[in-house]
Design a protein around this nucleic acid. Structure first.
Lengths: 116, 116
DNA sequence: GCGCTGCATTGACGCTCGTCGATACAGCCG
DNA sequence: CGGCTGTATCGACGAGCGTCAATGCAGCGC
């Protein structure tokens, strides 16, 4: 596959008020579920948290890849997180750096934040 | 699997500071991933949002079951949400009422809330 | 150019998941 | 009691996922 499938458009509408405020439409549920799915695997969640908490807001793959699975598997999971719109990647010389996409993260947090 | 597997203990430690603050341990990642997994299906996410946004903070299955899948499938998804600790259920006469468990919801929101 | 390191892709395998129809169970009502 | 409605469980099937070893590709240094 060539083009990075844009499962979640990072520049899309904020989408979702708190889940306690109104029921989700079918389309919104589909989009949000895709993001939750990206974090539904322990290995992926750890990779995500390592990028998010890394100094400077970005991390090279080599900094975070020690999570107990093979290197191809790490690469596979990072791709999933990219496709979900939760991470962005940039190649700088030999290394590839990942950072968190703030928009989708805020959308998920907003959805889960109780109004009361 | 017979007994209700307590994938996530509702009364467990708050578990997680924002994901931008520190990397998750393997155990915490496992627990949090289980919650995200529960919301990673569009049908489940819609059921959850319908319960969360329903008047009175609770909903009868009959109020929310029109999501385009069969009744057994709805029941199956509600069970998954229960097992993940995100919903609680109570039988009152003929009907079963579901409501959101505030603790786990807050844990997820807290994890995703950016510190900056 | 050549070899080496960092990361991505491919292809295969086993397991889990979402879905359904059929069926079972619980509580109300006549 | 007998029938009816609301909800849960069972068993089966196909699709998708996580994992790996093998391979490919890009960039650096000698």
């Amino acid at each position: 596959m060539s083009a990075e499938l844009p499962i979640v458009d990072a520049s899309a509408a904020p989408c979702c008020p708190p889940v306690t405020a109104a029921a989700l439409s079918e389309a919104d549920a589909e989009r949000m579920a895709a993001m939750f799915k990206a974090l539904s695997d322990p290995v992926r969640l750890r990779l995500f948290s390592r990028v998010a908490s890394h100094a400077g807001g970005e991390a090279c793959v080599c900094d975070i890849q020690d999570v107990g699975v093979s290197q191809p598997t790490v690469s596979h999971h990072l791709k999933k997180l990219r496709e979900a719109g939760l991470l962005t990647s940039e190649r700088r010389g030999t290394w590839v750096y990942y950072r968190v996409a703030p928009g989708p993260l805020a959308a998920m947090a907003g959805l889960l934040t109780a109004t009361r």
